[in-house]
Simulated scan of single mutants.
Amino acid sequence: MTRSHEPLIRLARFKVEELQKQLADIDRVRTSLNDQIERLEASVPEEQAAATDNKDGYIAYGSYAQAVIKRKQNIRSSLDEVDQQADGIRERLEAAFRELKKYELLEERRVARIEDALRAEEQAELDEIAQTRRRQAH
């Protein structure tokens, strides 16, 4: 009989689960970065309104607006990096999933061969019993 593929299946399943966790972490980071952009964009109208109230606020708003623009650029750069990481993890996840399926299929085939051999053995025993009874009946 061939060896079980269960250890390989467990290892491959572990790889798949770890990569899925990494992808979920990346998705949380992406959500957080998008939330930061939304908060920055939501703060702009408030700051514009405050800037129109007095001269000092109006002067300070220019610096604030530049800082917001720069911060959004930095966050978008971070989003691009996160997306690249996610793409890499997705590719590794697809490969790990294919590997898992390969091992599972090999194990299914191994088990099916064992079951076929057992059925053949049982059938041979039944055939032998039937022949013995036939001989005894004659």
Results as ranks from 00 to 15, higher is better:
114 I>N: 06
136 Q>Y: 13
107 E>W: 06
108 E>C: 00
14 F>Q: 10
50 A>T: 01
119 R>G: 02
65 A>F: 14
6 E>S: 05
73 Q>P: 01
135 R>I: 06
67 A>H: 11
55 K>H: 06
116 D>L: 02
107 E>K: 05
95 A>R: 13
42 A>H: 13
57 G>K: 11
122 E>G: 15
93 L>K: 08
95 A>Q: 11
87 D>M: 04
136 Q>A: 13
65 A>P: 04
92 R>N: 10
101 K>P: 01
101 K>I: 07
45 P>R: 04
98 R>E: 05
27 D>I: 06
108 E>N: 07
68 V>G: 01
10 R>K: 11
45 P>T: 05
100 L>P: 01
59 I>L: 13
65 A>N: 08
2 T>R: 10
110 R>C: 01
58 Y>K: 14
83 D>T: 08
25 D>R: 08
57 G>N: 11
46 E>R: 12
63 S>H: 15
23 L>Q: 14
17 E>W: 04
34 N>C: 03
95 A>N: 08
24 A>L: 12
135 R>S: 07
76 R>I: 03
101 K>Q: 12
25 D>T: 07
40 L>Y: 11
17 E>K: 15
70 K>P: 01
137 A>C: 00
136 Q>M: 14
69 I>T: 15
20 Q>H: 03
40 L>R: 07
6 E>H: 07
113 R>S: 10
112 A>Q: 12
134 R>Y: 13
